[in-house]
Write a protein that binds this DNA or RNA. Structure first.
Lengths: 247, 247
DNA sequence: CGTATTCTTGACCAACGTCAAGAATTGTGG
DNA sequence: CCACAATTCTTGACGTTGGTCAAGAATACG
């Protein structure tokens, strides 16, 4: 429980069991720590390694010339970042730490060896990549045809489902390190409008946020408000959802 | 020039040369035709094959319960659709034909044999998938922090770059089969607002659209208006851009 | 040549953005 | 544990982008 490797194992539920073992025993892994709001790799940088988030939240973002910022994705514990990204010349966006982050770096050579030794790991990587694209598509949908309140509700549903799949929720609540300003840049709105939309969700008793924790008393109700359907997360693939209490 | 295989070869510029040869000689390929506005595979269907667009435009879309539609991606000639998608249980969106489409189906078995025989094809698949995610991220950015006129301009720039990379432009113009209603569902706006934004682009002499063809007299100017940068398309990777005239 | 689709326009309205300032919360050093 | 500074949250007044509804004009198509 105390050391990095067991913590890592704990969060590997999105990969197949064989991949877990293989990755966890990988000697060439280097473990790195980042402070909150520190960039991990920037737009324009050449990517060299694949990263696996052990703890903390990272996020991808892009910034336009005039300062407009868009948060593109959240990387939660257990997520692999930039599978095979070293195929590309340079990063087209920035990966940053939202909270303090611990991650392990996997070199192309190590990854290559791994996929040779454990063919199923290649499949696991493809699976997670396909889920990433699907999620990005859902975010596009979210921005394109949902209203402010629905957008936020949808984001909360996704976060809750994803954290639940790696056992990081408690009953009806989960961590929520995103500030209203972050939520604004994630959902393409202003902080003022986020604030007012959150108030509506609170008034309707669909969520509460306190001390950086999100509580969803009635998930089904929130899903309805968000027009949310979890199919794009393809969680049933692994069958490894790990609810903390009822399993 | 006349038969499918040479036409296919023509459009393979996004894959490495070895992949081209391998895929083009693949005997197990089945060639399919779809009419305009026909669905190729629907949300909820189980995916069985990978598809390679030989001619015509396909598109991915999602529909909410109340009818709102979001166009999520465009699949242009030469694009592979749903690499390894058979890893997933079911489609989380629909793939449809925008114009009449010719495509070839590649079975998992054929793909598996291919990647074994030509390891570089696996890399090519990863490359195209990574570009797909990057493009989806850019669309998220487009919706999240660009204004109507910028959004449309950005979309036109992307289409022009992508078609140019497979030699499907003529001078400063390219096909534009999207109706204003399609553009609306792509950019998350209404047809009325698309219409007015297009008028602005036309008035400023940045584009003209006539007979389903888009002309961009000054691409650099349009890029500036769109806050467009082609880096996310990672075109320099293959170095195989094929401009029709100057090559 | 007629019908369906697509485009265009107008009038009006709602969702969301801007600006600004004060309250609450968080984090840090003494 | 407190004091103080920095963030973050909240609220108000008002402006703008883009949505709605509706109807006529222009194109595309069989």
């Amino acid at each position: 429980m105390g050391n990095i490797h067991s913590r890592k194992l704990e969060h590997f539920t999105q990969l197949s069991p064989a991949s877990k073992i293989a990755l966890s025993t990988l000697a060439s892994n280097r473990v790195c720590h980042y402070g909150a709001h520190e960039d991990i790799i920037r737009e324009g940088d050449r990517p060299h390694v694949m990263r696996l988030i052990l703890s903390g939240w990272a996020y991808r973002y892009k910034q336009l010339y005039d300062g407009r910022r868009q948060i593109l994705a959240l990387c939660l514990p257990g997520n692999l970042c930039d599978h095979n990204v070293f195929i590309l010349r340079e990063m087209d966006h920035t990966l940053g730490a939202l909270t303090p982050v611990t991650l392990t770096e996997i070199t192309p050579a190590a990854l290559h060896a791994l996929t040779l030794a454990h063919p199923c790991i290649a499949q696991a990587l493809w699976w997670e990549t396909l889920v990433n694209v699907a999620t990005q598509r859902e975010w596009t949908t979210n921005m394109g045809c949902r209203y402010a309140v629905e957008r936020l509700a949808h984001l909360f549903c996704e976060i809750f489902y994803r954290l639940r799949s790696v056992g990081l929720i408690e009953d009806t609540s989960c961590p929520m390190p995103l500030t209203q300003s972050d939520l604004a840049d994630t959902t393409g709105m202003t902080t003022v409008h986020v604030n007012r939309s959150l108030q509506e969700l609170r008034t309707k008793r669909l969520i509460t946020i306190k001390h950086r924790r999100l509580t969803i008393p009635d998930l089904a109700a929130l899903e309805r408000r968000a027009l949310f359907s979890p199919s794009y997360l393809h969680l049933n693939h692994t069958g490894q959802r790990r609810d903390t209490k009822e399993g």
